[in-house]
Amino acid sequence: MLDRRLPAPLTLTALAVVIGILVTTPLLINNNVFHHTLILIGIYAALAQAWNILGGFAGQISLGNAIFFGIGAYTSSLLLVRAQLSPWLGALAGMALAMVLALLIGYPVFRLAGHYLAIATIALAEIALVVFQNLEFVGGAAGISLPITRDMQGRPTDSWWMLQFNSSKLPYVYLALGVLGVVQVVATLLDRSWIGFFLRAIKNDQTAAAAIGVPVARYKLIALLISSACTALIGTFYAQYLLFVDPETVFGLSLSVLIALVAILGGAGSLWGPFLGAVVLIPLAEATRSQLGGRGTAFDLVIYGLLIMVIAVFQPAGLTGLPERFRPRQRTSVAPAAPADTQMEESLRS
């Protein structure tokens, strides 16, 4: 947001360096594990940024963003398997469906006072999980494998149109970074527009926001629509990368919670928090997962939940808030007067 940024030249330089590193290192370090990790970082940073627009900017906590991810992944995959439709078009269909669902959730929920969004999204993701596990039409619990794109001779091949690359992970690396770039740009533009101001006003104090003309429910819904569309897009990309979708992976609670954790660890509400959170957490999560074996265990969830609580208590501003914490306190003549002011405020209550 305005006034909280580094000076423009510094920001641009930092941005250029980060982009430069992201673009060149995959070429220099041509290693499958490294590429896989980069892809996951891109995916989770993008997912966390999509969550951040809703949870960080607007303060509307969703613990079920997996529902939109799953819709994106399943919509493009089913359209591909059943109708040979390009995943690019499938992605658009998935985003549209996710937004329709977001509207159906958000319209009633945002008209109620209180934190029903978290409950509503968790509940719907869990319902989707059970439904998809039991619907044969969508592959049931076993999920769907996507067909390999082949050339005339029947050999696996690469195709931008079918969004599939069988010779190397490198295109997926750049696609993941591209998706992250898109979501990052969306968040940045929002942050610097009236929408960002309205969302932050809503997060700070929605009664005060309404008093000065902010249509609170409408802007919460806008944040949810944007968040859901971005999340669905990433879902399609993820399915294309794995060439496989299954209900537990894409609708599971542990995915929803991990998305929130990445954003909260990095710094909810900050533009670079989600990226930072993913850079720190995803390699760790990958390393421990291969150590402990298996995903979707309740164990993941316990660890994630504990981490969120620890951050909420000790460092609510996340990693991006750390410099602020260790910076020497600014001189504020105001601070000592605060208790007296508070008392006066109390005595005026009537």
Binding site: L2, F197, F198, A201, A208, R349
Partner: peptide, 26 residues
């Protein structure tokens, strides 16, 4: 028609300028 609050409700994380800009964005 706009009101102020007796129990003041400055948006805490926004600067004074940003607080006022929210109103201006109407």
């Amino acid at each position: 028609l706009v009101r102020t609050f007796q129990i003041v409700r400055a948006l805490p994380d926004l600067t004074v300028l940003q607080n006022v800009m929210v109103g201006a964005f109407l």
